[in-house]
Write a protein that binds this DNA or RNA. Sequence first.
DNA 1: CGGGATCTTGAGATCGTTCAAAGTTTGTGG
DNA 2: CCACAAACTTTGAACGATCTCAAGATCCCG
Lengths: 237, 237
Amino acid sequence: MVFGNSCKQCGVRGQALCGVLADEELAPLAACGVQRSLARGETLVHAGDQAPICANIQRGLMKISHINPAGQEVIVGLLWPGDFVGTPFAGGQPLPAAHDIVALTPVSLCQFPQARVERTMVAHPAMERALLSRTLAELGAVRTRLSRLARATALARVAGFITESAHRSGVDDGETVTTIELPLSRGEMADLLGLTIETVSRQMTRLKNAGVIGLPGGRRVEIHDPDALAEAAEELV
Amino acid sequence: MVFGNSCKQCGVRGQALCGVLADEELAPLAACGVQRSLARGETLVHAGDQAPICANIQRGLMKISHINPAGQEVIVGLLWPGDFVGTPFAGGQPLPAAHDIVALTPVSLCQFPQARVERTMVAHPAMERALLSRTLAELGAVRTRLSRLARATALARVAGFITESAHRSGVDDGETVTTIELPLSRGEMADLLGLTIETVSRQMTRLKNAGVIGLPGGRRVEIHDPDALAEAAEELV
DNA sequence: CGGGATCTTGAGATCGTTCAAAGTTTGTGG
DNA sequence: CCACAAACTTTGAACGATCTCAAGATCCCG
């Protein structure tokens, strides 16, 4: 359940609810938001938690992760600034959280009492409708990601992640070389893409040797040939 | 977006909305449902379709599938009797369908005009809320499936599918040997689990040779050792 | 300028795929 | 009811992609 939000008091202008509700309609919700900060690695939601959390991410990046019995972690989703976290009306009864939600970077967010979110939604059907439509869209996106994880080669997964990160960075295309900062470490990329650290590293090197990208150091990536990168990403999507 | 539904006129008693709404509240929706049948292999929704479809599955099994540029198919979800298909309030504007929805068996369903579904939901917030909560649950389930596809071995995927099919068949546990009929062919299992037909077949044989299951022929599976089966499924979930 | 964490690279093992062929089941028409 | 064809399933052998284990190299922080 992730949707762009607008929290006047928090100073973030999101995408989804903004277009749907007038700012003053959001006031009752914004008024009860509590500012909160998370350090890198800090957990906002533990899988199995009964106490539901509703919050709006302002800065930083979070991961939704699943840890299997063997102790391996899989990142099943990322949350960016503007995204909403929470499961209002979760089945009527308190539904235990399905996954961990952890800060990948220092995060600041605006947290709301769930009951208040639910009451606000009852009062503003447009808001609930926006959340529903956002959730439906997210469901489609996760299914598409599922299909990629099922069949795509390691190279395609890595190329796809770089492409997506570039889009998220706002640096869309442009004929010139663009440089982005990957939001994840190699290990985190591996957990997200269902690969090992070594395989991720090897594919990065391969793209570099092919002249498609440059690796000037750190987490920086220069995109030399966006078309070739997109093509690599599509190889068995 | 899949949720159990109750369509009085269609004679199906689902799980989700039933508990939430009185039957007479559903009348306006049920009244405008159109009975429809699909042959095996027939497509209800094409990916990219603008015309949104809302329907309630009464009998049969459908797949939600994604076909990648290379022509490979991945089944990203299954729809069972009682499940609801559709994306009401899809982003305000008509959102093109993200995936194909195809009948795996002969299917009968009850189809509604989307506008009517939306109007009914506006009139009955409890219904919309039930859909939201169902969708959130489904999102969690798909994410969990994502984590399995990312890491689980072929054996675990196949064992997990058999276990899940057994649960769906209603045959829960019981100390005695239970026999179920798998709803999918080997090829469909392969598309669902991200494997090849041959690998699926080999894992089935492996489970049979280990005495965990029996394969009396056709799509039938005898579950001899549910614990061992569950254990095989958890090996790297 | 260390020192720990992160990243890269190599060599060998493993798991799943590919290609190929034989064996079953299913459904149809005589 | 049987015969036959088509579709589906099983099995085998070789290949290839990714993982595992093991060193180095590099980056980042104090």
